[in-house]
Amino acid sequence: MGREKRFGFLVDLRRCIGCQSCSIACKQEWNVPVGRYRSWVKQVAKGVFPDARKSFLPILCNNCANPICVTVCPVLASYQKPNGIVEIDAHKCIGCRYCMASCPYGVRYLHPDLGIAQKCNWCSHRTESGGQPACVEACPASARIFGDLEDPASEISRRISQNAVQPIKPEMGTNPRAFYIGLDDMTVEVKAHGHELMHLSE
């Protein structure tokens, strides 16, 4: 007791098989509206046959240590807990979408019926009482590791110290707390444009 936890997330991309179990578990856990996602797996085809493979990039909220969404939220609805998780107060949010506009990762959405911003909070209702996020429990390849970064004996701390890890877009200065083993910048940078993207999400 006494010591504050500092949560972190690690995705081992060498293990991810792109099955989207995490996306589905998240949808079920949070009743995420149709067409919106808190967590998903971006898929990219790399190379030309026969030297080709699929590259997977699970996306989720980084619960940044220096969150721009908290800086710009005009009504204190987005806030950061001492354990590092960035939450949205559903009773304060006015749905101005400034957090969505400023987030470098595009992980927030406006709930179409409630009119407020929502996002992944690493299942704080589970994790703050010692449990694991729904996506971590659902991952069949054990590619997702959640835990306390302050505890040097935790699995996430050991894995981070033993492997080369990197967050997505560290240059944004948001100090993300989700790390990746084997992150491929080519996979991060491939983007769809406008109408093209709409087809993909349909």
């Binding site: 996602y37 898929q43 030309v48």
Partner: peptide, 19 residues
């Protein structure tokens, strides 16, 4: 391998923000 031989297969876009 060049950047040109990467192709996006699946991604999510959570919608327009300001508009």
């Amino acid at each position: 391998m060049s950047m040109d031989s990467t192709q996006l297969l699946y991604d999510i876009h959570n919608g327009e923000t300001f508009g």
